[in-house]
């Protein structure tokens, strides 16, 4: 069972306090978008055996959403960051590059 640090309240808590929200950084298309773009938004999700950027909510805690970079196989957590970040912060990308290089 994962141990996750919530970036909003700083608490380090077990997975049962959190609710997963699926893949992160999916943009909601504009109302007039094409069927293809909208289908992509609704249905297309990655399922990598690798680093995954995902959304979580501290559901039993402070109630805040946040992002997490997690390896789906090793379960290594490379970092958590704010829910309104459009992409992972550089330091997390660097850590991932460093940790997955070898």
């Amino acid at each position: 069972m994962l141990l996750i640090q919530c970036p909003a309240c700083g608490v380090e808590a077990e997975e049962t306090e959190f609710a997963p929200g699926g893949e992160a950084h999916i943009l909601r298309p504009e109302p007039g978008c094409s069927d293809a773009d909208f289908a992509m938004y609704l249905f297309e999700r990655k399922n990598p055996r690798a680093v995954h950027y995902e959304r979580w909510r501290h559901a039993f805690g402070c109630g805040k959403w946040f992002h997490m970079a997690r390896h789906t196989h090793t379960l290594e957590i490379f970092g958590v960051y704010a829910a309104d970040a459009p992409e992972p912060p550089q330091e997390i990308k660097d850590r991932i590059a460093e940790r997955t290089a070898s």
Binding site: C9, V11, E17, F60, G61
Partner: peptide
Amino acid sequence: VRRTRIATVAT
């Protein structure tokens, strides 16, 4: 202060 759960109740 800690918001958490007791059993399955938000507490």
